[in-house]
């Protein structure tokens, strides 16, 4: 009787039942399937194994666990095989279903497609008169759908805040480990001091990149471009300058305080400029800002200042991402 019971406890059926019930996790008993050097190590007696304090990048050697791992290795292998097969099958099924849907979609590039409806017709026909922007896409995203763009800027700002929270290294609360991490992350010690090629190239390139970025931002309502692309160009110029000349030079004009002030004032100006309809509650309210002649640089009402705001936010966010990932602070 007990032998039958043992057989049942060792059988795959019970294990699968337990796994389905969530009592054991197959993954929890080991991930390495067949590592030959590990099998050799497992043959050694337990006392020979070193037992250092656990550190990142180091596996905790435990002979008992390894024995169990060898026993369960076959189950894990099956599980992994089934997982891979199922995921490939799932992906193929998704691709097939989507392709099936695509084969019923209307033909590519046809003017009579249902997405070319009265919304886009309205934007094209009266966008120039209503927003003053020659670029219809800019007029759409910064006038008709300005709240959407405001939300996007806020998404960028919140993302940089989250990265700041996650990657910030604070020396003040510091035990020895935090200080060590700070010293490792502070690559001002290691960064190249006088990389002549990079510095000479940056001397030529950075002003050009900056001017190009400002051009894209200021001409957002006249030509392809706008706050997002121009801001990305400005941010890349800042990053190039930082790489060439180091944090000491950059911090003369761009510190965390500057970042905070620029981003917050840009977002606040955007919010106040576009929320007048909230405060007045009117539907057909005229903004009172002249739209100007279409095609002139000072035209199309609020779109130019809003583009500048978005560009500043994007440039600051790009630079903040870079510095946070590089040294955990600004």
């Amino acid at each position: 009787m007990s032998r039958i019971r043992d057989n049942y406890e060792n059988s795959r059926c019970l294990k699968i039942k337990k796994w389905i019930d969530g009592e054991v996790d197959l993954l929890a008993s080991g991930v390495e399937i067949e590592a030959p050097e590990e099998a050799k190590e497992a043959a050694l007696p337990e006392s020979d194994l070193p037992n250092p304090a656990w550190q990142p990048g180091m596996r905790r050697p435990k002979a008992a666990k390894r024995r169990r791992r060898n026993r369960d290795g076959r189950d894990i292998r099956y599980f992994r095989r089934i997982y891979q097969l199922m995921s490939v099958f799932l992906c193929l099924a998704i691709i097939f279903i989507l392709l099936w849907t695509v084969s019923y979609l209307p033909a590519f590039g046809n003017a009579g497609n249902p997405d070319n409806n009265e919304v886009s017709a309205r934007y094209i026909e009266s966008g120039l008169q209503e927003t003053g922007a020659v670029n219809i896409v800019t007029g759409m995203i910064l006038d008709y759908r300005a709240f959407d763009t405001f939300g996007e800027s806020c998404v960028l700002f919140i993302a940089s805040c989250c990265v700041l929270v996650l990657l910030r290294i604070d020396a003040a609360d510091g035990d020895a480990r935090a200080r060590k991490r700070l010293r490792e992350a502070d690559d001002r010690v290691f960064e190249p001091k006088n990389d002549v090629i990079l510095q000479r190239c940056a001397c030529v390139m950075v002003p050009l990149i900056m001017v190009f970025g400002i051009y894209i931002i200021l001409n957002g309502h006249l030509s392809p471009g706008g706050g997002f692309s121009g801001g990305a160009v400005l941010g890349s110029g800042l990053i190039l300058y930082l790489n060439a000349f180091g944090f000491k030079e950059t911090e003369r004009f761009f510190t965390e305080k500057v970042y905070r002030r620029v981003t917050l004032s840009a977002l606040t100006f955007y919010c106040l400029a576009k929320s007048y309809s909230f405060f007045t509650g009117a539907n057909h309210l005229h903004s009172g800002i002249p739209l100007g002649t279409p095609g002139a640089i000072l035209s199309s009402g609020l779109i130019l200042p809003l583009n500048i705001c978005v560009g500043l936010v994007v440039a600051c966010t790009m630079y903040a991402f870079y510095t946070l990932f590089r040294k955990g602070g600004m």
Binding site: D115, N116, V119, I124, V137
Partner: peptide
């Protein structure tokens, strides 16, 4: 012109 909505 093409449809401006998907670009946005």
């Amino acid at each position: 012109y093409i449809n401006p909505v998907p670009s946005g």
